[in-house]
């Protein structure tokens, strides 16, 4: 059972790292600020989500697991909001 959990953790965390990597590549490679913003707001949030998912089986209690999810949710809300705000500023030609 624990080996299964470990495998699950490993897979999820590995995928999370991959998405962080992809987000960074997007941030470096994409040609303009608006497209870079997509890379940032989508890939990294998913990356963090997967890492949280991978850590869930290792949490001490259900409450601790919920706490991890809460952390993710907060980052998600912040990231999504600021992405919109930055996009809005860029659309208006502000830098």
């Amino acid at each position: 059972m624990s080996a299964l959990f470990d495998l699950f953790s490993f897979a999820a965390i590995g995928a999370g790292v991959f998405f962080f990597f992809a987000g960074t590549v997007g941030l470096i490679r994409f040609p303009d600020s608006l497209t870079r913003l997509h890379a940032l707001s989508k890939a990294d949030n998913l990356g963090l989500g997967l890492i949280v998912l991978g850590l869930l089986p290792r949490a001490d209690s259900a409450l601790a697991a919920f706490k991890l999810v809460l952390i993710w949710a907060l980052v998600l809300a912040s990231g999504a909001s600021t992405a919109q705000l930055i996009g809005r500023a860029l659309r208006r030609g502000q830098k």
Partner: peptide, 9 residues
Amino acid sequence: QLLGTGGIA
């Protein structure tokens, strides 16, 4: 922003 998210991870 990236650093913030990655740092938390």
